[in-house]
Design a protein around this nucleic acid. Structure first.
Lengths: 197, 197
DNA sequence: TAAAAGTCTTAAACTAGTTCATTTTTTTTC
DNA sequence: GAAAAAAAATGAACTAGTTTAAGACTTTTA
């Protein structure tokens, strides 16, 4: 059997941590659902329960909440080879506070909650896969946990630019401001200052 | 066989997510090391490699970094029935940026990196235990990831008070300021303001 | 139990970041 | 490819949080 391009991408991602037999690969792929979202389309909206966890095979999306004043707070940008979704809502089946919206035409592979649970029964190796995946995500979130309160906005911008050069050119300055946690006006000032340096 | 009080505590913690046989329990306990730290003592210091991940059976500790000006940024307080350590350093074996210091006389159970790896071979069920543990931690870190940039210091204080009433009476106002991400002076103003309300 | 060290409070002068308003530039849509 | 809509730039007046300094209170140590 040979797999589609998107299937090869996700199987390569999984094979970073566990080895699957051909049969297991087919089984895994059979549990996934293909999803497309056009630019500015919503993958999910606040108030819904997260039905899927997603792996991105093409495109770019932003995950954000709206505060009481309706101002967006972007918690992540996700591109090809990243996982995204609202893990909390997905696990608890409670309604989500998050919006996920494509900033480019995007393609994803989703796994439903039922299939996620089934996966551990059918291929217990996936306990290990997710153990390592969550461990790595956790390490990265722990590392960032203090950055909002201990760095200035300018330092957070410089760090983002260094860490995610492949993302910074694909998003608007306004969305970047929503991620850094400042107003678009102040973002504009910082960028012109840093570029002048 | 019967277990010590601290062993019962950690076995209860583990049994939230997986069931162990008596033999597995004994095996697990045999992989742990008991550690005591007196008030103001260090469990680890920046520059060291994290040799253990810890489960707290008694006491209270603070995990923090020092910034370039020597000001402490506290990333967590940990009390009985919590896990602590520097997961990044523990996994990568690179030197840590963190200090972990007891704010009360404390007792912990540590697992070394070698025993952590062995654990998955000997009792594969622990892949599931850590998958769920890390998933829950991750959900809580994701939930907090925007709180430093989207809430005011006063809102962060009120939230901390509501969420961790059992911790707030065990730490100094100065350490709380280091966690909230403000100066002790401003912390003092906020507390007197909130209490006046 | 006295001295030393650390913690907490208060206040005045300062700075990083916001708000609001206007203009210019870029992107989207028909 | 023109009109409309959205994003970016700039500037002036404002606010949340910092800095520095000094005195009062509490905890630790010898």
């Amino acid at each position: 059997m040979n797999f589609k391009e998107s299937h090869t991408l996700i199987l390569n991602n999984v094979s970073r941590f566990i080895n699957l037999t051909e049969l297991e690969k087919q089984k895994y792929i059979s549990l996934l659902t293909e999803v497309k979202v056009v630019k500015r389309g919503f993958l999910m909206q606040a108030g819904e329960v997260a039905k899927y966890e997603y792996f991105i095979t093409k495109g770019c999306l932003k995950v954000y909440t709206l505060d009481d004043d309706g101002a967006p707070h972007i918690s992540m940008f996700a591109i090809e080879d990243y996982w995204t979704g609202d893990l909390s809502s997905f696990m608890t089946k409670k309604s989500s506070r998050y919006y996920i919206r494509a900033t480019e035409d995007s393609e994803l592979l989703g796994i439903s909650r039922a299939n996620y649970d089934l996966l551990f029964q059918e291929i217990p190796k996936f306990e290990r896969f997710y153990r390592i995946l969550y461990q790595k995500s956790l390490i990265s979130y722990i590392g960032r946990s203090n950055y909002g309160i201990s760095l200035t906005a300018e330092e957070r911008y410089i760090e983002f630019k260094k860490k995610y050069p492949q993302i910074i050119n694909r998003i608007t300055q306004k969305d970047l401001a929503g991620y850094i946690g400042i107003t678009p006006e102040f973002m504009s000032k910082i960028i012109s200052k840093v570029n002048r340096m």
